[in-house]
Amino acid sequence: MKNFLIRFNAPQVDIGLLFLRVSGAFMLLHVHGWPKIVHYSHELTVIEDPFGLGAQFSLLAAIFAEVVCPVLIAIGLLTRFACLPVLAVLLVSMFIVHPQWSIAEGQFGWLLMVIFGAIAFCGPGKYALGSAIGRKELS
């Protein structure tokens, strides 16, 4: 009976991880990443530069974390690695750029940290490109 329950629940977990990856990646890409690409020139004038590396570097780093990484996460390729820049940008945003925000004001950022933190801990699951090509190190 115990083996049956383990086998029965495994596909649900993999479907849950797929849903978490795709929905989290879509939200990050749609709300933050895509607008940075479409309005690149404007974003250069308004992006925060918390480390003094220049607006262009900060914007390109944000685009990498909010466009490239979500695509990798959604398809399940280099998933855990791709979560790291996302989490880094979110941590910088929440603790350095907007430290005055309450949990309510920064709830989207906190929820994204929960989503991508869970994916980083759990991995992409079975329904991922890295798993499909049979190379665990790509997940």
Rank of each mutant, 00 (worst) to 15 (best):
K2Y: 12
F4R: 13
F4P: 11
L5V: 08
I6M: 09
I6P: 04
I6K: 10
F8M: 06
P11M: 01
G16M: 03
F19Y: 13
F19C: 12
R21L: 01
R21D: 00
A25F: 00
F26Y: 15
L28P: 02
V31A: 10
H32V: 06
G33E: 05
W34Y: 12
P35F: 03
I37D: 10
Y40C: 07
Y40P: 09
Y40E: 10
S41M: 11
I47Y: 02
P50H: 12
F51Y: 09
G54H: 02
G54S: 07
A55Q: 11
Q56D: 15
F57D: 14
L59W: 05
L59M: 05
V68T: 11
C69S: 08
L72H: 04
I73C: 00
L77Y: 01
T79N: 02
T79D: 02
R80I: 00
R80A: 02
A82R: 04
A82H: 01
C83Y: 01
P85H: 03
L91E: 10
V92H: 07
M94D: 12
I96R: 03
H98C: 00
Q100T: 15
S102N: 10
S102D: 11
I103F: 15
A104M: 14
F108M: 15
F108D: 15
W110G: 00
L112V: 03
A118P: 06
C122G: 15
C122A: 15
P124H: 03
G125W: 00
G125I: 04
K126E: 10
Y127E: 06
G130Y: 00
S131L: 04
R135M: 05
